[in-house]
């Protein structure tokens, strides 16, 4: 089925709204979305930071790295990174059931179960990593 708009129908011009530069400030949900996406910048930073650490370990310059890490601005940045990565983790794991709908014999596994599993996995992995890093010290 196609729409018929016979040629020669002069039409008063419809109004097209100009691009709204501040679209993300119009609704809370959009602001939260943009914050969620911007966590990626700090995810990238966190990776960079860990690469610096790995470099220091490889070069045997961990002392210098520790000194750098203790600078107040660096600590502030990492506190921000912690908040961002945690926010990323919570939002990402909570949204996962949208992409992975699990059906068992026609019964749809409710979102909260999948989310609960994800968060349990997060806790377990975090605990394991912390144990590996801290066990001898």
């Amino acid at each position: 089925m196609t729409t018929a708009r016979p040629p020669g129908h002069e039409e008063a011009r419809p109004y097209v709204r100009p691009r709204d530069r501040w679209w993300f400030a119009r609704r809370r949900s959009l602001a939260v979305f943009v914050l969620r996406e911007l966590t990626s910048v700090l995810v990238a930073w966190t990776v960079a930071y860990l690469l610096l650490l790995l470099g220091a370990v490889a070069d045997g310059t961990t002392e210098r790295f520790a000194a750098l890490a203790a600078r107040p601005w660096m600590v502030a940045l990492n506190v921000l990174a912690l908040a961002a990565t945690a926010f990323h983790a919570v939002t990402f794991l909570n949204l996962a059931p949208k992409a992975t709908v699990v059906r068992l014999d026609g019964w749809r596994v409710p979102a909260w179960m999948i989310q609960g599993g994800n968060h349990t996995a997060w806790l377990a992995v975090s605990a394991l990593l912390a144990y590996l890093v801290l066990r001898s010290s």
Binding site: S29, L30, F33, L95
Partner: peptide, 15 residues
Amino acid sequence: TFVGDCTRVCPKHVD
């Protein structure tokens, strides 16, 4: 980009 607002405003819970 999975903003999710489509689902939030849907009056028929289509998601």
